[in-house]
Write a protein that binds this DNA or RNA. Structure first.
Lengths: 383, 383
DNA sequence: ATGCCTACCGGAATCGTTTGCGGTAGATTC
DNA sequence: GAATCTACCGCAAACGATTCCGGTAGGCAT
């Protein structure tokens, strides 16, 4: 018969429905409902248990507060107990549970990064830089790829929010036009730093390279080397870099009183295929350029490949300058002159600013940082 | 005068030392110690509060259990209350606190990745692949760079342990000879999958590319193209890939009854400097090789650069094959023949296996996966 | 002996969830 | 009409830390 779990009697037991698959009983004496403990499931308590501070506390017969204090060089602790705790912690190889710590401190020591993609060397390098700085400060990094899609970018933001990151580094999608998902961070006091693809509508810190200046230097270099009919293969119009580099190109021409011819400017969506198309378009001109400033190195390389195929002599008949200094530019012949961006520095700067913002909290005032570019002169641009 | 916080009287109060900078009192009547509440610190409770389930619960006048259940399509919930909860959650724009969830579930939905470096395109691409499948399964990724240092690798492992990751993806340092930091994962039931630089001493899943087969194909290709005195620049002896590629090299020679000459095999630590040194060593031989199979593309490129400097004709006088198909190999002249590895697939496979291991728990049996390579024939190896 | 001090230690609340199980109202059954 | 059922809901205990503050033992002065 069924015994009441309290009075241990059997006389006043009645059934009382089935809950969650198990028969429930009611003891009229004790006025209590109960179900029988599950006999089937054997003690599967053999889960790999990680040692906690209570384990240490028990082993030493002290309270967990004491253990916690010992582990954090709190003043209210006897050096002897402290030593004992430290020793025991090592013995049981204790690993603090950062999740619990984050929960109670409401600080996760984690920063989030949202980048549009991860394929080129560009973003990985930035992330590496950021990760280095973060790691030194004891921060972890959660990385999200938005895949150039607004929708996943919003999802990414929510993931980071849900993980209670202490700050976020963002390079936007090229299709992002609404910014509520970014503003959500601000609303909760989570600092945000944009890099590269920045958001003008938000009053946060921003890190980018001085594209304008880089482009100016590049084109100026071509002019100084005797090129006069200089073309430009630009990037997609939606991107800020496109405008800035184009502006640098124009201003360099203006500075040396060279005419701006709009047939010498074409826009490329940065795919390999389109790069070749743009190159062809320029080389097919009745009056083809004697030099081209390209929006980035891959485009420059496609142009160079095409020119070589057509037996156009580089740099004698065609000077080429790229942008971004990718490894390939170094080994191609002739070696590609390019504008180097301090890629890892972008990540480092952004992370540094972010950590500062996290530390200062409310008191922090956003800053804009513009990183310098340097022209790397190789063979492709020296007549 | 000082009033007792309980009896509100002043007659039985005596001082009782100073704790944490504040005067403490003792009421002999109530037998109670107390300090005066701090008047100075004004209510700074205006911290940005994120809405929690109790906020929702209060707003709806239900218990937090009900809210939790409503949010998780639990069966014990009335569709109406569920709808109300969902609506209110949206109104207050509730973001679940994953830290708290992880704590109680003892499952963080996070996987860790330890890679030796982050500079080449190789590891970023793997990570991207892994990150993709992880994200699809709702997992976050924490990335650590060991910087090819055993010490930081151990530190990385501890970080991941402390963050209670559910699983780990590892590509070892080349100097790692002790594996306790890896075994710690096993001890706590955290599955580990090695990729690329695997650890033979551990009985876990491993993902790598079929280096042996790739090397075999590469050298066979050289032989078929008429090269007879084929050298090999290998990697550091500590790495498995070094052995496998060397084995492929040897077996290819044997297959075609070509003699193995040990002076034609040199080992390179993969740095640029050492690559040049190795290349020089081979080219300086009394009887220099007529072809070289290199452990990877960067090494092959350094060799090619040196050979070109010495006016050695490639591929006529020297055939070269690399390994890993890096972008630079495509633009160098002559274009580099290489063995392509499915890089992103490594990450995807490893992450897939890891997720499976996490899901199956104890029941999981480790597997070894070997990914196929493909030989990409370009110009540097066709006489 | 009586205050008051210092130097520690422990109890308990808290962070935001999940979850086992007890409780209850109203319907249904015998 | 009593026993039993269904369909919910709420209480409270975890999870593993941190931290506020009360408690206590022993020392020193008066």
């Amino acid at each position: 018969m069924i015994k009441c779990i309290r009075c241990k009697h059997v006389h006043a037991i009645t059934k009382s429905g089935i809950v969650r698959g198990k028969q429930r009983y009611f003891c009229k004496d004790c006025n209590i409902y109960f179900t029988l403990p599950d006999e089937t499931t054997v003690d599967m308590k053999h889960k790999k248990h990680m040692t906690t501070i209570v384990d240490i506390a028990k082993a030493l017969n002290v309270s967990k507060s004491t253990v916690s204090r010992a582990l954090h060089e709190h003043e209210d602790i006897n050096p002897h107990t402290r030593a004992a705790v430290l020793k025991m912690a090592r013995q049981l190889d204790y690993q603090p549970n950062l999740l619990a710590k984050s929960l109670v401190r409401s600080k996760s020591n984690t920063i989030g990064i949202i980048v549009p993609e991860f394929l080129t060397y560009f973003f990985p390098t930035i992330i590496m830089g950021a990760q280095q700085v973060a790691a030194e400060a004891g921060y972890n990094v959660i990385i999200c790829q938005s895949q150039e899609s607004y929708k996943t970018e919003v999802a990414n933001a929510n993931v980071l929010l849900a993980n209670r990151v202490d700050g976020v580094l963002i390079s936007m999608t090229r299709e992002t036009k609404k910014f509520d998902h970014f503003k959500a961070f601000e609303k909760h006091g989570i600092p945000v730093v944009f890099f590269n693809r920045v958001c003008d509508e938000m009053d946060t810190s921003k890190v980018l390279v001085n594209d304008y200046e880089g482009a100016l230097k590049a084109v100026e270099h071509l002019i100084k080397n005797g090129y006069r009919n200089i073309a430009h293969i630009g990037g997609p119009p939606a991107l800020l870099i496109t405008h800035n580099r184009l502006r640098g190109y124009k201003d360099a021409l203006a500075k040396y009183k060279l005419p701006f011819k709009k047939e010498l400017v074409v826009h490329c969506n940065l795919s390999k295929k389109d790069a070749i198309a743009c190159a062809e378009q320029l080389l097919n001109l009745k009056q083809p350029p004697d030099a081209v400033f390209c929006v980035n190195d891959p485009v420059a390389i496609q142009l160079m490949l095409l020119a070589k195929k057509r037996k156009i002599k580089i740099p004698a008949e065609l000077g080429i300058v790229g942008f971004s200094n990718e490894p390939s530019g170094e080994v191609i012949e002739p070696a590609l002159t390019t504008v180097q961006q301090p890629v890892a520095d972008i990540g480092r700067s952004a992370a540094g600013i972010l950590l500062e913002a996290i530390a200062k909290g409310e008191a922090y005032v956003p800053e804009k940082k513009s990183l310098k570019t340097t022209l790397i002169v190789r063979e492709s641009s020296i007549k």
